[in-house]
Design a protein around this nucleic acid. Structure first.
Lengths: 125, 125
DNA sequence: ACTTGTGTATTATTCAAATAATACAGTAAT
DNA sequence: ATTACTGTATTATTTGAATAATACACAAGT
């Protein structure tokens, strides 16, 4: 069900997180669907159950998965996710951008313009 | 001249590489300019000269810097400086920000608003 | 109660990347 | 030749993330 390559440079738990996120986004996994047990996956890929659990936990923290004690993880429903801390989650990338801009002696307006241009270009693709 | 944070999660040598790349792209550092000596930078930031050297070597390998035995590193290229490419210089931090925003399912306008807010707050400090 | 299935908290281990120590080689001025 | 600068090759050490071992808690069927 999943492609996990232990020697790819990308951590296994991250490969799993990315793949599950994509499957949910694409609708392959739908709200209510349950996921393979950590032991099942662990055995199939010859890795430790905790590695799978780590991936599941991250996705649960993101609001994409639901945990139910003693039962398998399930895909969460849409909009069922708790209100995310937008300012908090964006703080780091914002700070990075602004620091980079300042180092180039850009004004605030110029930084905003750079973002506007970037979004504009993306929209064109 | 540089902002190096040893406890940021991002390796120091990589922070340096990124910043120098941006400064060159934006024209802040021009062909022929020489860079601070590894010891100077190392002392200023209380880190090992080899860490700086590692950054310099990577940039030399990229063709952005020139090494001259016994002499300081210099920015590669000669003659007129290439046109300043602020947009290109900021591409990475911009992409990071937008990716984070998309992850939160924000609209482009909301991402721009978050930046505006951030700048506003900074101005107040 | 027992068995067999969930996930996971806690702790230990592994392993590779990042950093540092040391010694060396080139340049240039004195 | 000496001094005072450059950067770096080589080696060692540190550090932190990724992974694993172990033991535990809950659920559900028997």
């Amino acid at each position: 069900m999943f492609h996990l390559n232990p020697s790819s440079g990308v951590p296994i738990y991250r490969q799993l997180v990315d793949q599950i996120r994509r499957l949910i986004a694409a609708g392959q996994l739908r709200p209510g669907d349950s996921l393979p047990s950590v032991r099942e996956l662990a055995q199939a890929h010859a890795i430790n159950p905790m590695t799978i659990s780590k991936a599941y936990s991250l996705l649960e923290h993101e609001g994409l998965l639901l945990r139910q004690r003693g039962k398998p993880m399930r895909v969460a429903g849409r909009g069922a996710s708790p209100p995310s801390d937008v300012q908090g989650a964006l703080h780091e990338p914002l700070a990075q951008l602004v620091a980079a801009g300042r180092q180039l002696t850009l004004t605030d307006a110029e930084i905003q313009e750079a973002l506007a241009n970037f979004l504009q270009r993306e929209r064109r693709r």
